[in-house]
Protein backbone atom coordinates (compact mmCIF):
# COMPACT_ATOMS: atom_id res chain seq x y z
CA UNK A 1 0.00 0.00 0.00
CA UNK A 2 1.25 3.46 -0.88
CA UNK A 3 1.84 5.91 1.94
CA UNK A 4 -0.22 8.69 0.36
CA UNK A 5 -3.14 7.78 -1.85
CA UNK A 6 -5.07 10.54 -3.57
CA UNK A 7 -8.06 9.38 -5.57
CA UNK A 8 -10.13 11.44 -8.01
CA UNK A 9 -9.51 14.58 -5.99
CA UNK A 10 -11.40 17.69 -7.08
CA UNK A 11 -12.40 21.10 -5.78
CA UNK A 12 -14.61 23.87 -7.14
CA UNK A 13 -14.67 27.50 -6.06
CA UNK A 14 -18.09 28.62 -7.25
CA UNK A 15 -18.03 27.97 -11.00
CA UNK A 16 -14.26 27.50 -11.16
CA UNK A 17 -13.00 23.93 -11.21
CA UNK A 18 -9.53 24.48 -9.71
CA UNK A 19 -8.51 20.83 -9.47
CA UNK A 20 -10.25 17.96 -11.21
CA UNK A 21 -9.97 14.17 -10.94
CA UNK A 22 -6.40 14.13 -9.68
CA UNK A 23 -5.01 10.79 -8.52
CA UNK A 24 -1.56 10.31 -6.99
CA UNK A 25 0.28 7.54 -5.20
CA UNK A 26 3.42 8.21 -3.21
CA UNK A 27 5.42 5.36 -1.72
CA UNK A 28 7.09 5.63 1.66
CA UNK A 29 10.49 7.30 1.42
CA UNK A 30 9.79 8.70 -2.03
CA UNK A 31 10.76 12.14 -3.33
CA UNK A 32 8.09 13.26 -5.74
CA UNK A 33 7.64 16.52 -7.62
CA UNK A 34 4.41 18.29 -8.50
CA UNK A 35 5.00 20.69 -11.37
CA UNK A 36 2.98 22.73 -13.79
CA UNK A 37 2.56 26.27 -15.13
CA UNK A 38 1.40 29.12 -12.91
CA UNK A 39 -2.22 28.77 -11.86
CA UNK A 40 -2.32 25.03 -12.57
CA UNK A 41 -3.64 24.29 -9.07
CA UNK A 42 -0.51 22.93 -7.38
CA UNK A 43 -0.79 24.94 -4.19
CA UNK A 44 -4.51 24.17 -4.11
CA UNK A 45 -3.58 20.48 -4.00
CA UNK A 46 -1.29 21.19 -1.02
CA UNK A 47 -4.07 23.12 0.67
CA UNK A 48 -6.40 20.14 0.27
CA UNK A 49 -3.78 17.67 1.52
CA UNK A 50 -3.26 19.79 4.65
CA UNK A 51 -6.92 20.54 5.33
CA UNK A 52 -6.82 24.27 4.56
CA UNK A 53 -9.41 23.59 1.81
CA UNK A 54 -11.94 20.84 1.95
CA UNK A 55 -12.07 18.96 -1.38
CA UNK A 56 -15.44 18.96 -3.18
CA UNK A 57 -14.93 15.33 -4.12
CA UNK A 58 -12.39 12.53 -4.04
CA UNK A 59 -10.37 10.98 -1.25
CA UNK A 60 -7.04 11.43 0.52
CA UNK A 61 -5.54 8.65 2.60
CA UNK A 62 -2.31 8.67 4.57
CA UNK A 63 -1.24 5.16 5.58
CA UNK A 64 -4.84 4.13 5.07
CA UNK A 65 -6.27 6.88 7.27
CA UNK A 66 -8.77 9.30 5.74
CA UNK A 67 -7.70 12.98 5.82
CA UNK A 68 -10.72 14.58 4.13
CA UNK A 69 -12.76 16.72 6.52
CA UNK A 70 -10.06 16.93 9.18
CA UNK A 71 -8.74 20.29 10.39
CA UNK A 72 -5.18 21.40 9.56
CA UNK A 73 -3.92 20.83 13.10
CA UNK A 74 -5.38 17.33 13.20
CA UNK A 75 -3.76 16.50 9.86
CA UNK A 76 -0.43 17.79 11.15
CA UNK A 77 -0.65 15.43 14.09
CA UNK A 78 -1.39 12.55 11.73
CA UNK A 79 1.96 13.22 10.09
CA UNK A 80 1.72 15.81 7.31
CA UNK A 81 3.86 18.96 7.55
CA UNK A 82 4.34 21.71 5.01
CA UNK A 83 6.10 24.91 4.05
CA UNK A 84 4.50 27.82 2.24
CA UNK A 85 5.10 29.50 -1.09
CA UNK A 86 5.15 32.92 0.58
CA UNK A 87 7.19 32.29 3.72
CA UNK A 88 5.08 32.09 6.88
CA UNK A 89 7.35 32.23 9.90
CA UNK A 90 6.48 33.36 13.40
CA UNK A 91 8.31 36.52 12.53
CA UNK A 92 8.47 38.20 15.95
CA UNK A 93 9.67 35.05 17.72
CA UNK A 94 13.24 33.80 17.86
CA UNK A 95 14.60 31.17 15.50
CA UNK A 96 14.77 28.71 18.39
CA UNK A 97 11.20 29.41 19.49
CA UNK A 98 9.94 28.93 15.93
CA UNK A 99 11.21 25.36 16.06
CA UNK A 100 10.22 24.79 19.69
CA UNK A 101 6.66 25.84 18.87
CA UNK A 102 6.55 23.00 16.37
CA UNK A 103 7.57 20.57 19.13
CA UNK A 104 4.31 21.48 20.85
CA UNK A 105 2.88 17.97 20.76
CA UNK A 106 6.24 16.21 20.96
CA UNK A 107 7.15 17.28 24.47
CA UNK A 108 4.17 18.21 26.58
CA UNK A 109 3.41 19.44 30.04
CA UNK A 110 0.15 20.68 31.49
CA UNK A 111 -1.27 24.19 31.71
CA UNK A 112 -0.69 24.14 35.48
CA UNK A 113 2.98 23.41 34.87
CA UNK A 114 3.02 26.24 32.32
CA UNK A 115 1.59 28.69 34.85
CA UNK A 116 3.69 27.63 37.81
CA UNK A 117 6.81 26.28 36.05
CA UNK A 118 6.51 23.21 38.22
CA UNK A 119 7.72 19.68 37.97
CA UNK A 120 8.78 18.66 34.52
CA UNK A 121 8.87 22.20 33.14
CA UNK A 122 12.61 22.82 33.31
CA UNK A 123 13.62 19.34 32.26
CA UNK A 124 11.20 19.26 29.34
CA UNK A 125 12.11 22.77 28.17
CA UNK A 126 15.77 21.67 28.13
CA UNK A 127 14.85 18.59 26.12
CA UNK A 128 13.01 20.82 23.65
CA UNK A 129 15.99 23.20 23.42
CA UNK A 130 18.29 20.27 22.64
CA UNK A 131 15.97 18.78 20.01
CA UNK A 132 15.35 22.15 18.37
CA UNK A 133 19.10 22.85 18.23
CA UNK A 134 19.72 19.43 16.66
CA UNK A 135 17.32 20.23 13.86
CA UNK A 136 18.67 23.78 13.43
CA UNK A 137 22.18 22.29 13.20
CA UNK A 138 21.16 20.33 10.09
CA UNK A 139 20.17 23.59 8.41
CA UNK A 140 23.22 25.51 9.64
CA UNK A 141 21.05 27.77 11.77
CA UNK A 142 22.10 26.67 15.27
CA UNK A 143 24.43 29.65 15.73
CA UNK A 144 21.58 32.02 14.95
CA UNK A 145 19.08 30.46 17.35
CA UNK A 146 18.52 33.73 19.24
CA UNK A 147 17.84 35.88 16.15
CA UNK A 148 14.35 37.16 15.60
CA UNK A 149 13.03 35.13 12.66
CA UNK A 150 12.18 38.23 10.61
CA UNK A 151 15.83 39.34 10.77
CA UNK A 152 17.21 36.26 8.98
CA UNK A 153 18.24 36.59 5.34
CA UNK A 154 15.71 35.25 2.85
CA UNK A 155 17.42 31.96 2.09
CA UNK A 156 17.73 31.13 5.78
CA UNK A 157 14.08 31.98 6.38
CA UNK A 158 13.21 29.31 3.81
CA UNK A 159 15.45 26.85 5.63
CA UNK A 160 13.95 27.74 8.98
CA UNK A 161 10.50 27.03 7.61
CA UNK A 162 11.61 23.54 6.56
CA UNK A 163 13.26 23.02 9.95
CA UNK A 164 10.03 24.01 11.68
CA UNK A 165 8.01 21.61 9.55
CA UNK A 166 10.44 18.78 10.32
CA UNK A 167 10.17 19.43 14.05
CA UNK A 168 6.61 18.10 13.97
CA UNK A 169 8.11 14.67 13.06
CA UNK A 170 6.10 14.29 9.85
CA UNK A 171 5.77 11.16 7.74
CA UNK A 172 5.08 13.32 4.71
CA UNK A 173 6.73 16.69 4.10
CA UNK A 174 5.16 19.06 1.56
CA UNK A 175 7.49 21.75 0.22
CA UNK A 176 5.86 24.58 -1.72
CA UNK A 177 8.50 26.12 -4.03
CA UNK A 178 11.40 25.73 -1.62
CA UNK A 179 13.88 27.26 -4.09
CA UNK A 180 11.80 30.31 -5.02
CA UNK A 181 13.94 33.42 -5.00
CA UNK A 182 17.19 31.54 -4.41
CA UNK A 183 20.32 31.93 -6.52
CA UNK A 184 21.86 28.84 -8.20
CA UNK A 185 24.35 28.32 -5.38
CA UNK A 186 21.65 28.48 -2.70
CA UNK A 187 19.48 26.13 -4.76
CA UNK A 188 22.39 23.67 -4.91
CA UNK A 189 22.76 23.77 -1.12
CA UNK A 190 19.02 23.34 -0.73
CA UNK A 191 19.06 20.21 -2.90
CA UNK A 192 21.74 18.70 -0.68
CA UNK A 193 19.79 19.64 2.43
CA UNK A 194 16.60 18.01 1.14
CA UNK A 195 18.50 14.78 0.36
CA UNK A 196 20.14 14.85 3.77
CA UNK A 197 16.88 15.47 5.58
CA UNK A 198 15.22 12.61 3.73
CA UNK A 199 17.94 10.18 4.76
CA UNK A 200 18.34 11.43 8.32
CA UNK A 201 14.66 11.68 9.20
CA UNK A 202 13.28 9.04 6.83
CA UNK A 203 10.63 11.45 5.64
CA UNK A 204 8.67 11.20 2.38
CA UNK A 205 8.76 14.42 0.34
CA UNK A 206 6.34 15.94 -2.14
CA UNK A 207 7.49 19.24 -3.58
CA UNK A 208 6.19 21.94 -5.88
CA UNK A 209 8.95 23.61 -7.84
CA UNK A 210 9.55 25.71 -10.93
CA UNK A 211 13.32 25.28 -10.96
CA UNK A 212 13.67 22.41 -13.43
CA UNK A 213 17.31 21.81 -12.52
CA UNK A 214 16.23 21.07 -8.96
CA UNK A 215 13.28 18.97 -10.07
CA UNK A 216 15.33 16.92 -12.53
CA UNK A 217 18.17 16.70 -10.03
CA UNK A 218 16.42 15.19 -7.04
CA UNK A 219 12.88 14.05 -7.83
CA UNK A 220 12.30 10.36 -8.52
CA UNK A 221 8.86 10.79 -9.99
CA UNK A 222 6.85 13.73 -11.30
CA UNK A 223 3.22 14.67 -11.64
CA UNK A 224 2.43 17.49 -14.08
CA UNK A 225 -0.66 19.57 -13.54
CA UNK A 226 -2.24 21.91 -16.09
CA UNK A 227 -5.54 23.75 -15.61
CA UNK A 228 -6.25 21.59 -12.58
CA UNK A 229 -5.94 18.28 -14.44
CA UNK A 230 -3.12 15.79 -14.67
CA UNK A 231 -1.20 16.33 -17.88
CA UNK A 232 1.48 13.70 -17.43
CA UNK A 233 3.30 11.57 -14.88
CA UNK A 234 6.49 9.56 -14.86
CA UNK A 235 10.21 9.83 -14.29
CA UNK A 236 11.75 13.31 -14.75
CA UNK A 237 13.48 12.26 -17.98
CA UNK A 238 10.21 11.08 -19.55
CA UNK A 239 8.08 13.92 -18.34
CA UNK A 240 10.38 16.80 -19.16
CA UNK A 241 10.71 15.64 -22.76
CA UNK A 242 7.00 15.04 -23.16
CA UNK A 243 5.91 17.44 -25.96
CA UNK A 244 2.60 18.19 -24.21
CA UNK A 245 4.44 19.28 -21.06
CA UNK A 246 6.81 21.47 -23.05
CA UNK A 247 3.82 23.06 -24.82
CA UNK A 248 2.03 23.68 -21.52
CA UNK A 249 5.06 25.55 -20.18
CA UNK A 250 6.22 27.37 -23.29
CA UNK A 251 3.12 27.57 -25.48
CA UNK A 252 2.82 26.48 -29.12
Amino acid sequence: MAMLEVTQLGISFGGLRAVDALSMRIEKGGLVGLIGPNGAGKTTVFNMLTGVYRPTDGGIRLDGENLVGKTPHEICRLGVARTFQNIRLFSRMTVLDNVKTALHHETTYTLAESLLHLGGYRKKEREMDARALDILEVFGLAEKNHYTAANLPYGQQRKLEIARALATSPKLLLLDEPAAGMNPQETGELMETIELVRKKYGVTVLLIEHDMKLVAGICEYLYVLNFGRELAQGSPAEVLHNPEVVTAYLGE
Binding site: T50, V52, T71, P72, H73, C76, R77, A81, R82, F84, R88, L89, F90, S91, R92, M93, D97, K100, T101, A102, H104, H105, R164, A165, A167, T168
Partner: peptide, 19 residues
Protein backbone atom coordinates in the same frame (compact mmCIF):
# COMPACT_ATOMS: atom_id res chain seq x y z
CA UNK B 1 4.66 30.07 22.40
CA UNK B 2 1.50 28.61 20.89
CA UNK B 3 -0.44 31.84 21.59
CA UNK B 4 2.30 33.99 20.04
CA UNK B 5 2.51 31.64 17.04
CA UNK B 6 -1.23 32.14 16.45
CA UNK B 7 -0.67 35.92 16.62
CA UNK B 8 2.30 35.93 14.24
CA UNK B 9 0.82 33.59 11.66
CA UNK B 10 -2.35 31.65 12.30
CA UNK B 11 -2.15 29.53 9.14
CA UNK B 12 1.40 28.45 9.92
CA UNK B 13 0.46 27.74 13.54
CA UNK B 14 -2.31 25.41 12.38
CA UNK B 15 0.08 23.73 9.96
CA UNK B 16 2.34 22.69 12.85
CA UNK B 17 -0.50 21.23 14.85
CA UNK B 18 -1.70 24.14 17.00
CA UNK B 19 -5.43 24.58 17.40
Amino acid sequence: RAVMAVRDNAIAAESIGIS
